[in-house]
């Protein structure tokens, strides 16, 4: 195998850089990381876990109603980047995020931003299905309840039903809404988590490898669901499956060691990658 260092951008090994100010902006990125009318615009994101640099000066725009897939080898910072967008990195001790994340004219990375409304606006689906150990109904109803969307029980029931329908789970669970969410199968649990996210009516949905714990059939159902959801939501999905990225996304971003190497139209990335790192990864030479 060839040395990876030779393929890296000339900034050298990123672990040696501890001061983000010296980090060059991601001018090395191949492709259009800037969009004309982005939903979210991330500029020069640097993430550190303690002394360890996880993301090194990354800029990437997320378009409206698009599915953006993020691919790359393990530890390349895709999940970390995803968690910047709804500030989930706040919950990790020793994690520092700098840079600008512009959304509706506001920098959502600034400490003044309240994470509660932000996370209602930018929902998240996690790698491992994590339903609350409560009934299916309570799982979906929790979000609308805490945000005060509903006043009557009927309204709440309506939200629960609609969310489960949109997540494609209604038919399977409508007769057992009072059973625990943990009693469902893995794929159903993940769709329940998607329903729970939809119930809060977010604008952006972040998905962190949502199918990695699922079998191919459940994966296919979720992929179909993502295709449906695209009409109403902006979706960012991290995935290890290149087939999945090519199936569900319009744009694909390739991450490598905390840098954004290449971003562009999914077809172009998979058919005609411009950077050699990207090519090596998607042709399976490493990663």
């Amino acid at each position: 195998m060839m040395s990876l260092d030779s393929l890296l951008p000339e900034t050298g090994s990123i672990d040696n850089k501890t001061d983000h100010k010296t980090v060059a902006p991601s001018f090395k990125t191949v492709g259009e990381f800037k969009l004309k009318d982005p939903r979210i615009s991330c500029q020069n994101i640097v993430v550190r876990y303690g002394e360890k640099l996880a993301i090194n000066g990354l800029s990437l725009d997320i378009g409206r109603n698009e599915v953006l897939a993020m691919i790359g080898p393990s530890g390349c910072g895709k999940s970390t980047f995803l968690r910047c967008i709804n500030r989930m990195n706040d919950t990790i001790e020793g994690c520092r995020v700098t840079g600008k994340i512009m959304m509706d004219g506001q920098d959502i990375n600034s400490p003044e931003i309240d994470t509660v409304p932000l996370r209602a606006q930018v929902g998240m689906v996690f790698q491992k299905p994590n339903p609350f150990p409560k009934s299916i109904r309570e799982n979906v109803a929790f979000g609308p309840k805490i945000h005060g969307f509903v006043e009557t029980k009927a309204e709440l029931e309506e939200i629960v039903e609609n969310s489960l329908k949109r997540a494609g789970l209604w038919k399977e669970v409508k007769d057992r809404l009072d059973q625990p969410g943990t009693s469902l199968s893995g794929g159903q649990q993940q769709r329940l988590c998607i329903a729970r996210t939809i119930a809060v009516n977010p604008e952006v949905i972040l998905m962190d490898e949502p199918c990695s714990a699922l079998d191919p059939i459940a994966t296919a159902i979720i992929e179909e669901l993502i295709y449906e959801l695209k009409k109403d939501y902006t979706i960012c999905i991290v995935t290890h499956s290149m087939q999945q990225a090519s199936r569900v996304s319009q744009r694909t971003a390739y991450f490598h060691l905390g840098e954004l190497i290449e971003v562009g139209d999914t077809k172009q990335i998979f058919m005609n990658p411009k950077n050699r790192l990207t090519e090596d990864y998607i042709t399976g030479r490493f990663g």
Binding site: M88, V116, F126, F132, G143, I146
Partner: peptide, 14 residues
């Protein structure tokens, strides 16, 4: 499990 915390925080619970 931290996943429970993340689930709740992820949908905007304080």
């Amino acid at each position: 499990p931290p996943s429970i915390r993340e689930a709740a925080l992820g949908i905007g619970a304080s």
